[in-house]
């Protein structure tokens, strides 16, 4: 049971949220948005959003807009 974060394999566990992942990585403040497969998830939803097994996660350092 694995998933990928920015192309690198990580172990997956049942009930893992985006907030859990960033906490495990020590990166909770640097990312405002992550993409799980093709779906964007923003920080207000990090604690509610589960990471599915075998998913592809990208951490998006969104500092720019316009």
């Amino acid at each position: 049971m694995m998933f990928r974060v920015n192309g690198e394999q990580r172990s997956w566990y049942e009930g893992m949220t985006v907030a859990d992942l960033l906490g495990d990585m020590g990166d909770s403040q640097h990312y405002a948005v992550v993409r799980i497969n093709d779906k964007h998830v923003s920080r207000p939803y990090f604690e509610k959003t589960l990471i599915p097994d075998n998913s592809e996660v990208f951490l998006i350092p969104l500092i720019a807009g316009g």
Partner: peptide
């Protein structure tokens, strides 16, 4: 126009 400074995320989110 936002092409001078787009600071919303830096200010509000980060």
């Amino acid at each position: 126009q936002h092409d001078e400074a787009w600071l919303i995320f830096l200010d509000m989110v980060h």
